[in-house]
Amino acid sequence: MKKIFFSTALILSGAFITAKAQSTTTSSGISFGIRAGVNLQNINGKNANGDKLENKLLPRFQGGVTADIPLADQFYIQPGILYSGKGAKLLDTDIKTSISYIDVPVTFLFKPMLGTGHMLLGVGPYVGFAIAGKVSDDNGNEEKIKFENEVTQAQYDADLYARRLDAGANLLVGYEMSSKFSIQLNAQLGLAKINPEITGASGDKTASRNTGFGLSLGYRF
C-alpha cells in the first residue's frame, strides 16, 4: 500500500512541475492530463462446478494519461492509456492473484460548472491488454500466469492460465477544481471472461471477470 501512495504522489508531483513550466492545451480546445491512484480489485464469477468464487478485494495501483476532447458545451470524450493493476485475494488465505494490464478507456464525460470548478460524470467502455501476471503468497512463493485463449486439460492442470484481453465498462464521478487538480471515484465492470476455454471440457462452468473501484487524483495541463 505504501508503494501505491508513493507512486501516486511522485506522478502528481511531476505533473505539477511540468504544468508550471508549460501549457499543453491545444488551440482546438483539447487538453491533456495525468492521474494516478489506488484500485480495490476483485475477480468475480464461478468456478468449474458453478460455485461462486470466494475472493477478497486486493489493492492495486492505476495511473496514466488522458485527453479531454470537446464535443459540445460541457461534453467531452476522454480517451486514455493507463497502467492498471487488477486481481484478487483468495478468501481466508494469503494467496493473491495479480495481473497487470494496459487499459484503454474511452469515457463520455459531462463537466458542468459547480462552484469554482467542474463536476465530473462519465461512462464508457474500456479494453485491457494483460502484460504480466502471477499468483503469490506471503511466504515468497509465486507462479507466473501464462496467457492463452484456449488450453488443453493437461496444460490447465500443469500451469496457471488467463486470457490476455479484458473488456468492460467504466463509470466515474469526481470534481475538478479551478486549479485543474481533480479527484475522482471510478468503478470498473469487466464483461469479458478472463479465464481460458479448456478444450474438450464438458460441463465446465468457470467464468472469471475483473471488477473493482478506485480513488485517484489527477491534474489537467
Rank of each mutant, 00 (worst) to 15 (best):
L171M: 09
G63A: 03
M177F: 14
V127I: 14
G115D: 00
G190M: 05
S100V: 06
K3L: 06
Y101W: 05
A36Q: 10
L109K: 15
L114W: 11
G133F: 06
N149Y: 01
V65W: 02
P196V: 14
G200E: 09
L91E: 14
D68F: 12
Q153T: 10
Q184Y: 07
K180V: 00
N47K: 13
N149K: 03
R164K: 15
E176M: 14
I183M: 04
I34Y: 08
G214L: 15
N210F: 10
L57W: 10
N149M: 01
L58I: 05
S23K: 04
F6Q: 06
I95E: 13
L171S: 01
G64K: 14
G14H: 08
D166A: 07
D51M: 08
Q153K: 15
I99Q: 05
S13Y: 11
K20C: 05
G174E: 08
Q62N: 12
D92G: 13
I95P: 02
D92I: 12
F181S: 09
I30R: 10
F213L: 05
P125S: 13
N44D: 06
L215T: 00
G190S: 09
S136M: 05
K86T: 02
I30W: 08
P112C: 11
Q74G: 01
K134G: 01
G133D: 06
K134A: 00
G117Y: 02
L71K: 07
L12Y: 05
A158E: 15
V151E: 12
G85W: 13
I11K: 07
G190N: 12
G128K: 03
G80R: 07
L121K: 08
D68V: 02
I30V: 15
R163C: 07
K20R: 12
S84W: 03
M119C: 01
K205Q: 14
A67L: 13
T25M: 00
T66Y: 11
G37P: 13
M119E: 00
F32R: 06
